[in-house]
Simulated assay, not measured.
Amino acid sequence: MKKSSPTIRDVAAAAEVSVATVSKYMNNTQRFSAPVEAKLKAAIEQLGYRSNPLARSMITGKTRTIGLAILDIRNPHFTNIVKGANRIAMQNDYTLLLVDTEESQERERQLIEALAQRVDGMIVSSRMPEEAIQWMIDLNKPVVLFGRTRELPIPSVGTDSHLAAYMLARHLLNEGHRHVAYLGFGQSRWNAERIRGVTECFQEAGLTIDVHDAHAPSAQAGEHACSAIMLAPKRPQAVICYNDLIALGFMKEARALGFKLPDDVSVVGFDNVPYGEYASPALTTMDLQSERMGEVAMQKLLDVLAGHDGNGEYSLLEPRLIVRESTRRREVGAEPVSLPTSKPRRKA
């Protein structure tokens, strides 16, 4: 016959205390003297007792679960955020409940509202403009957002997109690039800041940039946008992409069109996704500290759950330039090289 699991009554009997004392000790709702806590700890370990999370949540009103809503689990930027957030959650005896909104603004609110009913607090990445997310406050659950909120009393964490874009643009200028395009993603809350950073840097040098927009923050969107940019009469010497996925797709299509990288065009991105280092050529990028972003967001939420007032507090992480082989130095004033005379055709 299978041995039954130890119960809270068994622990109480072994420690010679009441069931209520065991419950309060297990749920961290009351402290006891050192000898009593030592007896409780010894009894729990000896019996191998494990509390029932559902029963505990019914008593305390807490689930010990944190909700994390991200935009696309396939994007390594977000998987790195999950990794960082989960590390801090585990260290503090919390479980992470993940929701992937799949870049769908239509379903985003519905999914986050459902998530709020099952967790103690939430960390949210959203494409919604700030004026459209008041409803998150009305859920009456602590929330931490990625990206700064200027009007709402919600703690947030992010990386300085304006500075990151400026640094990338400065790198290209220092490498002698004068004809530069920016391939962005207009639905992102950070896209305007990146355009502003790139534009400001080039304006200081008396130059302008060409701005284009990808239909999604994906490698496929980078592929799709490449030909219109690279086969245009005013072909750029370098392309700054909204993120690394767009940059990797752009590079793939540029090679398919017959261009050599970085000889014909330099390409850069944002996020420092893990496999950007293994692309050919390896991708120059801005490290936005995605994993650290997840760690900071989780710690902010745990602080709020512990009773600390984090309303409106914004933590800004410093971006770091990672220079690899997808950029090369070009003679200042040099015109773009001519279009290849023969281009390999991709199969339909």
Rank of each mutant, 00 (worst) to 15 (best):
A43N: 14
L68I: 11
H77T: 13
M58D: 05
L145H: 09
G333V: 11
S218A: 14
N191R: 14
M26H: 04
A116K: 01
A254C: 01
C201A: 15
I123F: 05
Q117V: 04
Y25I: 13
R150K: 04
A225G: 02
K3G: 04
R74T: 15
I8C: 08
V337R: 13
Y182S: 05
L301E: 02
R196F: 09
M136T: 04
D72W: 10
D100M: 04
L173A: 02
P142R: 07
L172K: 04
T327P: 07
K260G: 15
E113I: 08
A55F: 05
A297I: 06
G176N: 05
G67T: 06
I112V: 07
S156Y: 01
L111V: 05
L96D: 03
V323R: 14
R328E: 12
W190P: 00
Q117P: 00
V273H: 04
H162A: 09
R346H: 10
E106M: 09
G147L: 05
E16Q: 08
M293Q: 13
V144S: 02
G158W: 08
V17T: 11
G184W: 08
H308T: 09
S338K: 08
A282D: 11
A282G: 01
G84V: 12
Q203M: 01
G269K: 10
L98Q: 06
E335W: 02
S125V: 01
Y94I: 01
R196D: 08
E331A: 03
T63R: 13
A256T: 06
L301I: 01
P76W: 14
S5G: 09
T285M: 03
D10C: 12
R64I: 03
Q203N: 09
A216R: 15
H212Y: 15
Q203A: 07
T284C: 00
A232G: 11
A256G: 00
M167L: 10
T95D: 08
F78L: 05
S161A: 14
K234E: 14
Q187V: 11
L40D: 11
A69G: 01
V124M: 03
P281E: 12
G333Q: 01
E200H: 14
H179C: 06
R346K: 14
I73W: 02
C226N: 07
A247R: 11
V337A: 09
P217D: 05
E113A: 08
G147M: 02
D271H: 15
A38P: 00
I44E: 06
I112P: 02
I229S: 08
Y182I: 09
L248W: 02
L71W: 00
L145C: 02
T284Y: 05
V11I: 13
A306Y: 01
M167A: 03
I137T: 00
V273S: 02
S18M: 07
F32Q: 13
E253W: 03
A247V: 11
L145F: 05
A279G: 08
L96K: 12
A116Q: 07
E106N: 00
T65F: 03
T63H: 14
L152M: 00
N243D: 14
H215K: 10
A221W: 15
E102R: 15
G61K: 07
I112N: 02
L245D: 12
M251V: 04
L98K: 13
T65Y: 00
H77R: 13
E313L: 07
R107Y: 12
S23K: 08
K41H: 03
